[in-house]
Write a protein that binds this DNA or RNA. Sequence first.
DNA 1: ATTATAGTTTACATTTGAGTAAACTTTTAG
DNA 2: CTAAAAGTTTACTCAAATGTAAACTATAAT
Lengths: 171, 171
Amino acid sequence: MRISAIEEYGLRCLLALAKQGKNNQLSISDIAEMEGLSVPYASKLLAILRRAGLVTAERGRGGGFSIATDPTQINLYDVLTALGGPMIDPKHCSRYAGQKNQCVHTEKCSIHDILGGLAGYVQSFLSKTTLRDLIAADSTGLLVRTGTHIEIAPTALEQELGSQRERTVLE
Amino acid sequence: MRISAIEEYGLRCLLALAKQGKNNQLSISDIAEMEGLSVPYASKLLAILRRAGLVTAERGRGGGFSIATDPTQINLYDVLTALGGPMIDPKHCSRYAGQKNQCVHTEKCSIHDILGGLAGYVQSFLSKTTLRDLIAADSTGLLVRTGTHIEIAPTALEQELGSQRERTVLE
DNA sequence: ATTATAGTTTACATTTGAGTAAACTTTTAG
DNA sequence: CTAAAAGTTTACTCAAATGTAAACTATAAT
């Protein structure tokens, strides 16, 4: 269960655009440069974001991308789902059916129940965090981090409302 | 962000062994048959589980696999980490460094902070669920499910302590 | 109109993970 | 002691995800 490359890099590109505000554009080459990506790859990511309605594109000279709506209106669940699909897709049972036509666990399946519960749990976490939160965290630096590792403030880890409290502080 | 095939199938094999109890063995071909997997593939998954110390193996005629310890002592976080590695590994920043040697976001990186927070959140969810819970859910059928889709009881979805309440009921 | 800029699309190459195959080692029944 | 049963290991093939290349379309400055 890992974050995919497209989710990771796509989110970064989107965040870069969100920081510019709705009335400022960045070209693909701008974004590629900023994020250390190749132009074709950034192009692919931005196309996905555009089709999902998260960014808007203007063609031609002087064109570029800009964030589609206010960063408070874009939450991480929608972004990651647009980039990487749902955590548990409707085809999960047939996708993991082994050698049989149908999954052997169709009658009673606690695993899928629990994983479905996990997916809901993750969704609830991600839905509460918006791009606005990420921007604020970057500019104020309230969250704990180290050079190479990732460390969230312990309070945020242990409590259900951790991310909400942070948002309250940051806003 | 998806469940990998190895995580999914490996968990199923482990759960099958957990249901047998610590004093009963299943051979690879038993498990492969039960789970609808090929013998070589089941073999691979069980080897991973054995190296992680989650199951024990006895060689030779009459041998087989059995669960290493009581199902109440094995939680889903440990199982999924053994099978698929950590959600965010220590090399995350260098893994997703784009074309540069170092990730361009080493200074301020709200994304990694939030994803790290998510990983902790997921860990907290998965750590609270043990194989015992899965066995109980399968036998009592308290959790909601449909034929092809996954639906956890709404109460469990919305509340932080959902899974704990279920465990209380089941035990 | 022409040209340079900039996003779009499709197809391709590369890498990684999924799943298979086969040879090997260990144990026990006879 | 031998053969069959059963787990172990390594190497390989195939499919999917990652990342690249290139040709295409749209816009605006001149």
